[in-house]
């Protein structure tokens, strides 16, 4: 069976662990248990009649306390960039991580998940900013690890893009 490594990238608290947990186990928790070190999950999926074993690397979010070891990115087929729609600066952090990811894995496909879409009242990322991102050819999906909205879609888009890679 084909195996694909996916890294979850994004600054701390954006919902990387919650997205994996929703996707793999259909579980969501309000409690913030920041990831320390690396946690790897597996999920077998069928996309376009192809069985794929996804190996999901949930990395800790970068902050003043820990920076991502670039070696973790090696062997990555694609990555899910995660930003928190209720925290404007997390988008800039995602852009920064994306640049550094390119330096290690080259042109591997990625999808930007704008997470916490259920928190509309606190939303900080406006349409204009989003259009700019889309203009650069990025695939953007609004997700909510809480309600499940867009979660499957984000991973499916990424998996398809990875399978299309030579």
């Amino acid at each position: 069976m084909i195996q694909k490594k996916i890294c979850m990238l994004g600054t701390f608290g954006v919902g990387k662990t919650s997205l994996v947990s929703q996707y793999v186990r259909s579980i969501f928790s309000d409690k913030y248990l920041s990831t320390v070190g690396v946690k790897v999950d597996k999920k077998e999926v069928v996309v376009d009649n192809q069985r794929v074993n996804l190996v999901l690397w949930d990395l800790y979010g970068e902050d003043g306390f820990q920076t991502i070891q670039q070696s973790y990115l090696r062997g990555t087929s694609g990555y899910l960039l995660v930003a928190d729609g209720t925290r404007f600066d997390t988008l800039a952090a995602a852009r920064d991580l994306q640049k550094r990811a390119v330096a290690v894995v080259g042109k591997a496909p990625f999808v930007l998940a704008l997470n916490k879409a259920d928190l509309e009242a606190e939303w900080q990322i406006d349409e204009r900013t989003l259009l700019k991102v889309a203009d650069e050819g990025w695939t953007v999906v609004r997700t909510s690890a809480r309600t499940g909205l867009g979660v499957q879609q984000a991973f499916d888009l990424l998996t398809r893009a990875m399978l299309e890679q030579p």
Binding site: Y32, S34, D63
Partner: peptide, 17 residues
């Protein structure tokens, strides 16, 4: 185990934000 300290630090950073 650095988890309790790092978790508290991130929780605080988020609340500070």
């Amino acid at each position: 185990d650095p988890r309790p300290i790092l978790r508290q630090a991130r929780q605080d950073a988020l609340e500070h934000e």
